[in-house]
């Protein structure tokens, strides 16, 4: 405990690093994944812009990238990370890898949220003369908002998990702190406190998500 108290400044920095990684990648992956997920949904044959060729390409790419474990994925894209961020270590590099990896996960979540929308609602929008762009932004997203928010909460938890793994690759943050100041020095108090911090973060995220989803669903 004394050891932890003498390193609280490192702990606080780690929290900020984690928050930065999580929220930066949540925003970037959220937007990329939203675009990719909507594309998966609308290009599916029989849907709004049904196109078997486009859909197959997107579907295969997502299926290939998504199951790669994050630790391996982030290592594999080191050259790309170096090209874009300038380095492969530190929270910014980790956030870049996180954003890419999470975007593919988000795309599936988005696609699943949209599948729940009644096709008849989209038909009603088409019947009044609405074009695809308008339907996507003023019908699909609002109609799927509740499930989308719940999906993003789920992804938030996933990103916190991945950000801890990012510590292994020198990404910094709470994962890094738990390992270098905790387990590697057999200081379990540090590990437990870090775990508690992550649990609180996850709980807060899930709570906010549930609250927003309830409002969107009016329940």
């Amino acid at each position: 405990m004394d050891f932890f108290l003498s390193n609280t400044d490192v702990f606080v920095t780690a929290i900020w690093q984690t928050l930065f990684m999580v929220f930066a990648s949540l925003i970037v992956a959220g937007l990329l994944g939203l675009a990719l997920g909507i594309a998966l949904y609308v290009y599916r044959p029989g849907n709004l812009l049904g196109n078997r060729g486009v859909f197959t390409v997107l579907n295969v790419v997502v299926n290939i990238v998504r199951p790669i474990p994050f630790v391996i994925f982030s290592t594999a894209i080191f050259p790309l990370t170096r090209a874009v961020i300038g380095t492969t270590i530190g929270p910014q590099a980790a956030a870049f890898a996180l954003s890419l990896a999470a975007a593919f996960a988000v795309s599936r979540i988005v696609e699943q949220s949209l599948v729940g929308i009644e096709p008849g609602v989209i038909e009603a929008a088409r019947a009044v003369g609405a074009g695809p762009g308008r339907i996507i932004f003023t019908v699909l997203i609002p109609e799927g908002l509740g499930p989308l928010i719940l999906g993003y909460s789920f992804i938030f938890v996933g990103i916190v998990d991945m950000s801890a793994q990012a510590g292994l690759n020198g990404g910094g943050g709470l994962g890094d702190f738990a390992i270098t100041y905790g387990s590697q020095r057999s200081n379990w108090v540090v590990v437990w406190i870090t775990v508690a911090a992550i649990v609180v973060l996850v709980q807060l995220g899930q709570f906010v998500g549930n609250h927003l989803a309830r409002r969107a669903l009016r329940r």
Binding site: E118, G120, V121, E123, A124, A125, R126, A127, V128, G129, V139, P142, E143, L145, A216
Partner: peptide
């Protein structure tokens, strides 16, 4: 289509 109205069995209202 803007000049042709349509109604449906399941109403198809926007829930949002």
């Amino acid at each position: 289509r803007q000049g042709i109205g349509m109604i449906f069995q399941q109403f198809n209202l926007f829930r949002s």
